[in-house]
Design a protein around this nucleic acid. Structure first.
Length: 750
RNA sequence: UGGGGUAUCGCCAAGCGGUAAGGCACUAGUUUUUGGUACUGGUAUUCGGGGGUUCGAAUCCCUCUACCCCAUCCA
């Protein structure tokens, strides 16, 4: 596994360290309304993975709050997926519906707190009242119902006195919130529908935003991890849990980017369309990115987990290359599975000088570089079949296989040479007459003949006829939109491929490498001993095919795209005059003056500091850069320091008591403690070191410790000057005067 | 256009003021009875653009740009 941490692990570790959480509890909360796909695998990997990594636990919870969409068959598929991937959930499978009674109680509590109300406008009106992203919403006339009225209405909703859609329960938050999700979100709606678990017990069902956070809380979840599109919902998540004043600890939500893979689709809607429109054979069609499909195709759970690990977890929307997925399964199978020979497109070869009728050759199932044991008998006879591709009458340059002039080795067998071609009336080759070299047998070759390659083959009389299903990517477009982008050749069924008999009779495994072709999997459903069926998992890398196609080289030079800059908002007359004063009277540079003039808080802070110390440039710099950050992060009211303290700090910089670097360090201290800067410098002994002799000896020590970097520097890697400066500064705890360090270093390094 | 996010190699992705990790893909070579594997090397003078602060910026500040999400009684 990887050594670098993702942002979620960083958060978890911090929370564990700070004591915020004693145990890590996560949950995988799918809605049972569709088959899980590889995107779910990523979520499973994250949630169960974090629980496993930090000795916590992970729940499997079905988010079943919408009775009209969910079904128990999906519950089973979801459970299968988790188990198959190698994870175990804590205790029983949970259901949000288990908590319906508690959630209902919380709703009543909210009504009693006057933080929720029953609304009775119709859907259309509600949408209008909600406003738009740029316009505030308006209150519904029902928002002012009394608590008693709301309580009564909600009870009647619950009892089933109303039709679907007549009333809803909404949180009372803020109809003019900039976050649309906070404009009095719905918490309960009426649904007279049979729920697959609770039957007709309820006719009101909680919405996701209300049920999810509470379910997390009820289960004691510490980190509620979901995908990016729920970022806006985090405000409700927090609002519900905070407003209800629940006993701590409570869960917190974090979001990561969902998985996207090119040449495939991941949305439930599109997947459903493929299945229902019979574009594929079912949810487990091997071309689908569903767990069931991947599994039927022959992917191993390990390879999928590895894939999830390799693509990483971050917050940037991304589109992973399928090549990455294909790599993980090849890499997983390569050291594990037996190699066997299967001819997909047979071409008959008659070995005319072969005397006997047949013989059996010994052949290992594994190449030398795979440390596994196992052999089988390989029948050889006068008539064999080779891959049509492995013969060329007029070979291109660099062709290593059989040609009229070029002999080739039969893998594990003899070397053969082509003597004559038999063609049909269309000119298609139907048979090759060949000769073999009796002394060239694999392992005991004394013929001295050199060949360029070894090809796979099967014996004519003993080979078994099998069905092979060749899968290619489902879509031909890298970012498929819909049905029109389907790849018409995504499935090719070969009814009469020929395979060596041991594969079928001995069945040494269920996954194989068909030598020189790819990895294949015995289809778990359609395979029978009478009619074996193999699915192609993934092809081997094929650098020959690549070389042949490589003709049109893209001679693209990276052109730098020109970026158009937008217009900056004009300053008001007041800002204009302030800007002019800063520029002319105080000699500030235009960027700093600009920032200060446009920001009332910053300029006020600056003016106050300036009244204490007349050092306009240095004050302006620290205020526009460092102070600005603090105000941005925590607001000006929360600042623990005053302009006067900043002025005192800058005074020490001005009289060279401390360096700029130390000033920043002291500033950080002031930010958190609000202490007097002079005192901090005194108590920590942060006075700057400028004595060239002291610095000189430190430099010598650093140089001595880093001989290889010194060499690199002398060889021309001038970037390393920064490295050396950094080392010296580190050695002095940041106190060395960087200007002097630079000067001296430049001298010493020559 | 309001709010919330995100930008580091062809694709992912580390990095949190001091030498731009790693994987895939690509590429050159070595080994090879799989044109596979394995191994060795090559791939970002630069981090969306422009400024600023600093001895030193992918990292801090300002600003611009592009993309994604939000106006389901879905989750």
């Amino acid at each position: 596994m990887k050594q670098s941490k993702n942002f979620l692990q960083t958060i978890v570790e911090k929370d564990l360290e700070s004591g915020k959480n004693r145990e890590i509890v996560t949950r995988f909360p799918p809605e049972p309304n569709g088959f899980p796909h590889i995107g779910h695998a990523k979520s499973i990997f994250i949630n169960f993975g974090i629980a496993r990594d930090y000795n916590g636990h992970c729940n499997l919870r079905m988010d079943d709050t919408n009775p009209t969409k969910e079904d128990t068959t999906y519950v089973e598929a979801l459970k299968d997926a988790v188990t198959w991937l190698g994870y175990e959930w804590e205790g029983n499978v949970r259901f949000t519906s288990d908590y319906f009674a508690q959630i209902h109680e919380y709703a009543i509590k909210l009504i009693k707190m006057d933080r929720a109300y029953v609304d009775s406008v119709d859907e259309e009106e509600m949408r209008e009242l909600r406003g738009t992203v740029t316009e505030a919403g308006k209150h519904s006339k029902y928002a002012s119902r009394t608590i008693e009225e709301n309580l009564e209405m909600f009870e009647r909703m619950c009892k089933g006195e109303f039709q679907d859609g007549e009333h809803v329960l909404r949180a009372k938050i803020d109809m003019s919130a900039a976050n649309m999700k906070m404009r009095d979100p719905l918490m309960y709606r009426i649904r007279h529908a049979e729920h697959f678990r609770t039957g007709s017990e309820w006719c009101i069902y909680p919405m996701y935003d209300f049920a999810h956070c509470l379910s997390d809380y009820i289960e004691g979840v510490s980190h509620s991890i979901c995908t990016l599109e729920f970022e806006n919902n985090r405000d409700i998540y927090n609002w519900v849990l905070d407003t209800l004043e629940l006993n701590p600890p409570r869960p917190y939500q974090y979001e990561f980017a969902r998985l996207g893979i090119n040449y495939t689709v991941m949305s439930k809607r599109k997947l459903l369309e493929l299945v229902e429109g019979n574009y594929v054979s079912g949810w487990d069609d091997p071309r689908l990115p569903t767990i069931a499909g991947l599994r039927r195709k022959g992917y191993t759970p390990e390879s999928i987990v590895t894939f999830c690990d390799q693509v990483g977890i971050a917050k940037a929307n991304s589109m992973v290359d399928v090549a990455q997925l294909e790599f993980t399964i090849r890499d997983d199978l390569n050291p594990k599975v037996p190699r066997v020979m299967c001819v997909l497109d047979p071409l008959k070869v008659t070995i005319e000088n072969y005397e006997g009728s047949s013989e059996e050759l010994d052949a290992s199932y594994y190449p030398d570089d795979v440390p596994r044991e196992g052999t089988r008998k390989l029948p050889f006879s006068r008539e064999i079949y080779i891959e049509r591709d492995d013969f060329e009458e007029n070979p291109p340059k660099g062709y290593f296989r059989l040609t009229p002039e070029q002999p080739v080795r039969l893998k594990h067998g003899y070397i053969i040479a082509c003597k004559e071609l038999i063609k049909d009336s269309d000119g298609k080759i139907t048979e090759i007459k060949a000769e073999y070299y009796p002394t060239s047998q694999s392992g005991s070759d004394t013929s001295g003949i050199k060949v360029k390659s070894a090809i796979h083959w099967v014996s004519g009389d003993k080979a078994k006829k099998v069905e092979v299903r060749l899968y290619d990517r489902l879509y031909s477009s890298e970012m498929p939109e819909g049905i029109e982008d389907l790849n018409p050749n995504s499935l090719q069924v070969i009814k009469d491929a020929l395979i060596e008999p041991a594969v079928v009779t001995e069945k040494p495994d269920e996954r194989f490498q068909f030598e020189r072709q790819g990895y294949f999997f015995a289809d778990p459903i359609d395979y029978t001993d009478e009619k074996p069926v193999y699915n192609k998992i993934v092809g081997l890398k094929d650098s020959w095919a690549k070389k042949r196609k490589a003709a049109p080289q893209k001679a693209q030079t990276k052109e730098k795209k020109v970026q158009i800059d937008g217009e900056v908002v004009a300053m008001t007359p007041e800002q204009e005059s302030l800007f002019a004063r800063y520029r002319e009277m105080l000699k500030l540079n235009s960027e700093v003056a600009n920032t200060l003039a446009r920001d009332v808080d910053l300029s006020a802070f600056f003016e106050e500091a300036l009244a204490v110390l007349h050092s306009p440039v240095n004050l302006a710099n620290i205020i526009t850069n460092e102070v600005a950050r603090e105000i941005k992060q925590s607001g000006k009211e929360a600042l623990k320091f005053t302009p006067k303290q900043i002025a005192e700090l800058i005074k020490m910089v001005d009289d060279t008591t401390i360096s700029n670097k130390i000033a920043k360090q002291v500033f950080e201290e002031i930010v958190t403690s609000g202490e007097n800067p002079v005192k901090i410098v005194e108590s920590k002994g942060l006075v700057q070191i400028s004595d060239p002799e002291i610095i000189g000896s430190m430099i010598d020590a650093v140089i001595e410790k880093n001989p290889d970097n010194l060499e690199k520097f002398r060889a021309g890697n001038k970037k390393l000057l920064g490295f050396f400066v950094g080392q010296v500064l580190k050695a002095t705890g940041g106190k060395a005067n960087p200007k002097i360090v630079n000067q001296l270093l430049a001298q010493k390094l020559g």
